[in-house]
């Protein structure tokens, strides 16, 4: 009944619980997007919900084996890692395509002046950009 893992994190007991009203459900916008992609891909029948929870469970288990104590802030990181894995496993995108696209976004972000929307077309290596 008592969560042993939580009880071990006694140092956390000294910290305040950050609550404002009902509290936001997403800490950052990317969490909302990662969440929504999973729901959308489930609706598109790329995977069943039990396949998803199994994938998420594997990520969490792997993270806890490598010493992550599953702090609340890491939940959506596991969520994102599981999403990448299941997208690759289901053949919706390859790992290398994800890596290349991520690099393209990084170049696009660097090439975009502050305050401007970051567009993939801003990637200097993308076709069609100056």
């Amino acid at each position: 009944m008592i969560p042993r893992k939580a009880a071990l994190d006694a140092g956390d007991a000294l910290l305040p619980i950050a609550r404002e009203g009902d509290g936001p459900i997403f800490g950052e916008a990317w969490e909302a997007e990662a969440f929504a992609m999973v729901v959308a891909l489930h609706e598109a029948k790329l995977f069943s919900w039990s396949e998803w929870t199994a994938a998420l469970g594997r990520e969490i288990a792997a993270a806890s084996r490598s010493g992550d104590r599953d702090s609340g802030g890491s939940c959506y990181l596991h969520w994102l890692a599981a999403l990448e894995r299941i997208v690759v496993d289901k053949g919706a995108a390859s790992r290398s395509a994800l890596e290349q696209r991520k690099a393209a976004w990084a170049r696009a972000a660097e090439a975009t002046p502050h305050g401007q929307p970051i567009l993939l077309a801003n990637d200097p290596q993308s076709k069609g950009s100056p």
């Binding site: 995108a93 994800l98 690099a103 076709k127």
Partner: peptide, 28 residues
């Protein structure tokens, strides 16, 4: 857009690594 990526992976000044991963997934 046909992306000619060369797999050198570095963070941008104004997008975190995680945000880049989310954008990569979402755009693909």
């Amino acid at each position: 857009g046909d992306i000619h990526g060369h797999d050198h992976d570095h963070d941008s000044g104004h997008l975190t690594d995680v945000a880049l991963r989310v954008r990569a997934l979402e755009s693909l």
